[in-house]
Nucleic acid binder design. Structure first.
Length: 154
DNA sequence: GCCAACGTTGGC
DNA sequence: GCCAACGTTGGC
């Protein structure tokens, strides 16, 4: 299958592009929305690439690129009673929540702000805008190429 | 199955 | 901190 592209949100206070750069490879855990879960579980493939997006911060926007290095497996946090992502209904035989593993690829030279995305005639059609509260959204090959070709961004 | 109440996300 | 847009929960 052709490589697919995604956009994944994280609050930089919790986990930022700099944290990913240092850690190199992490589980993308704590997804507790069914629509986002279905994307992780059913659609994300090893080798796919994703934009790292900073949300709920002074300047939200795209800040880097990562690669999906491991496909979905049960999210361990759902079994951890001390985690905010604990799910009392989850059991090893019936684990509703999954995570993928991502690896750092590159950090943008500067942020590509949401305000720019919303003002751009091509980018304002991104699923990021249409499904504005979903933390994992698809990015079309056209949108991906367009952003990668932006002057001075990378 | 409907819907009101409540909780969360995330931009501003 | 506010609030719009959803998503979830639970009574009926």
């Amino acid at each position: 299958m052709a490589k697919q592209y995604w956009l994944m949100k994280s609050e930089p206070d919790t986990f930022s592009i700099d944290s990913l750069q240092k850690m190199k490879r992490v589980p993308w855990d704590g997804i507790r929305n069914y629509r986002a879960r279905n994307i992780l579980r059913d659609e994300m493939k090893r080798g796919d690439e994703a934009f790292f997006y900073h949300s709920s911060c002074p300047e939200p926007g795209i800040v880097g690129i990562m690669e999906i290095v491991k496909e979905a497996s049960p999210d361990p946090l759902q079994f951890d009673s001390k985690s905010p992502y604990f799910d009392p209904k989850a059991s090893p035989s019936k684990a509703p929540w999954v995570c993928v593993e991502v690896a750092f690829k590159r950090k943008a030279k500067s942020i590509l702000p949401l305000s720019f995305i919303k003002a751009d005639s091509l980018l304002k059609k991104m699923a990021l805008i249409r499904w504005n509260r979903l933390s994992v959204t698809p990015v079309s090959a056209e949108e991906w190429k367009y952003i990668l070709a932006m002057k001075g961004l990378w």
